[in-house]
Design a protein around this nucleic acid. Structure first.
Lengths: 343, 343
DNA sequence: GTGAAAGCGCTAACAG
DNA sequence: CTGTTAGCGCTTTCAC
């Protein structure tokens, strides 16, 4: 039923190899032959069989996207959706397909051996949120090319990430110095076993230090990036009477809003807030949330680009893309300078 | 470097065929041989090469998940995230992998021919939101087994879906008859070229009819399921002074809340609301949103089950799973009977 | 129960 | 520039 190279060869009066050459863009085919074959291919809408191709050439034109789920319902956070979308879009452009692995811990072991040794993909993009991600280590020990989303200095692989530390530093500094300056700057941090959570807290600390503010541990609550955790973190924070909070994710900021509203306080009047991520909800919050913009989709796209370049050029030395953060000022920080506003 | 069947055969002192039999669970292998081979396999953590397997057997143990994106940034809606998660989880359990195709319209054609003819997947799950989804038609004309998410009576394929019409009927009826009954029942409907949008509007109409309320077209505004469209739809609705609104998605309900709040009206005091989807945000809205629960993740899982059963048993007649809706009563409908409450 | 042998559809030397 | 020839690693008759 489905056609093979052989059939196309027969139809166009050449050998199988020539058809293969045409398909793979080999230079050494006369223009005339090429056109003839191309026509036939198009006419029959011929698609070479991936499995055979893989077997013969060791290449699948498929990349894997690995997202560790850590047991949590990671998908309440649009972060991963955007990532998937970016990865997928770039793959479409480059004529690659994407194999998605949501790495539930229980299947992790089987998944890793699959990924690295059964030849389904040419390489993988790994969303490496945890500082100590076992999958990343396994990958490191394999021959499988991969690129990380999330910077991991210790790992010998390309990566793309936002500068979390700098971003948090800027956000916190802004709270301290903007036109509606604050004194008691709290933070709702992310989990400290994640790179982002860790670095963002470091950025917060740095900003306080540089502005001569001593760090008060009662003003630091660690959440888990979710709305619910932001809510309860804010409840814990309220008795300490902060007048500003740097929140390490927009989702947690939404939770903080809820707690503040319930306490009958106003934003930014009583408490100024700056978030992190610039999710779509940030513009719809009341008041609209000042936050750090993360071009998540672009990050996904760039990870794929790095990976494909690496696959095609056999480049050996890792590239590290660090994306510069951008602070988006809206109403929640009480800043009146809205030059940089958006939406 | 990586092992082959041949290697395992050598190590265990049998032939390649026997190893293959063991791996594929063929009965005709002596228990003793089986154990010996199994041990070696485990010891070396051997993974059979998928490409070779596919080529020889015509089976990949990979299913495709196709999500048409219609150009929109579909991923603001957690619906698709949950779907992906459900599909992925079930595939993990059944030892399948999932190939994800976000069908951007521009790549649709190429994607479809890939899907159906290059043998990367054994079958596909398609999220069929549009009534007239071209991909579904192409699939229909191919030999590729597939199951639909979203009911399509005209299509000869298994499907799983919620009973949108009944759900909308129940939601609307509740608004009319609950302990805080209403008269001017409006609706913010979904796009009428989607199955869900269409059926939910039908359910709304049916409920009005059955309760002897004449349908007033000024009380019907069509949105596109997004927060923003819910917001502007509600703005259009406000001048018509509805006292209740059935909103065809929770995201739109969030937008409606925003418009109502800005207009200085209260929920459910001035306007009662019932949403649709029961997204995580529903419980966090203020007041918590009464809505129709959709077990999206389960729907994804069941679609995979249907597909895999079909693949393994060569079943021919399509199965249609219709999931019964469940109305979750929270505070937004003004109903005091909170027996059914959640979260 | 087990092994030998014939491909699955393609790519990649190697000749010419 | 093009055709011939070996496989890639596995499954699956078909003998034994």
């Amino acid at each position: 039923m489905t056609l093979t190279l052989e059939d196309i060869a027969k139809f166009s009066g050449v050998s199988r190899s020539t058809v293969s050459r045409v398909i793979n863009g080999d230079e050494k085919v006369s223009e005339e032959t090429r056109q003839r074959v191309l026509n036939i291919i198009q006419q029959y809408n011929f698609q070479p069989n991936m499995a055979a191709r893989r077997l013969a050439a060791g290449r699948t034109n498929v990349i894997g996207l690995v997202i560790p789920t850590d047991g949590g319902n990671i998908f309440n956070d649009p972060y991963f959706s955007s990532l998937i979308q970016g990865v997928s879009a770039q793959c479409n452009h480059r004529e690659y397909s994407v194999m998605l692995w949501l790495a539930e811990p229980e299947f992790e072991h089987r998944m890793v051996s699959q990924i690295v040794s059964n030849g389904m993909v040419d390489g993988v993009v790994v969303s490496s949120t945890l500082i100590d991600e076992p999958i990343v280590l396994s990958l490191q020990n394999s021959m499988m090319p991969f690129v990380l989303i999330g910077h991991r200095p210790a790992i010998q692989a390309s990566s793309v990430d936002i500068d979390n530390l700098l971003a948090a530093y800027q956000a916190t500094s802004h709270l301290i110095n903007c036109s509606s300056p604050r004194k008691r700057i709290a933070t709702i941090a992310g989990p400290q076993n994640t790179i982002a959570g860790h670095d963002r807290l470091k950025g917060y600390n740095l900003a306080l230090q540089e502005n001569g503010i001593t760090i008060d541990n009662t003003l630091v609550i660690v959440g888990n990036f979710s709305e619910a955790s932001g809510y309860s973190a804010m409840q814990q924070l309220l008795p300490t009477r902060p007048d500003a909070v740097f929140v390490a994710s927009d989702l947690m900021a939404a939770g903080a809003y809820r707690a503040i509203r319930e306490a009958g306080l106003s934003i930014p009047g009583d408490i100024a807030i700056v978030g992190f991520d610039d999710l779509p909800i940030a513009t719809q919050m009341d008041p609209p949330l000042s936050t750090i913009h993360q071009p998540i989709q672009r990050i996904g796209e760039q990870a794929v680009q790095l990976l494909i370049n690496q696959l095609q050029h056999e480049e050996s030395k890792p590239t590290h893309l660090i994306i510069q953060p951008e602070l988006i000022l809206r109403a929640s920080c009480g800043c009146t300078n809205l030059a940089n506003n958006s939406a």
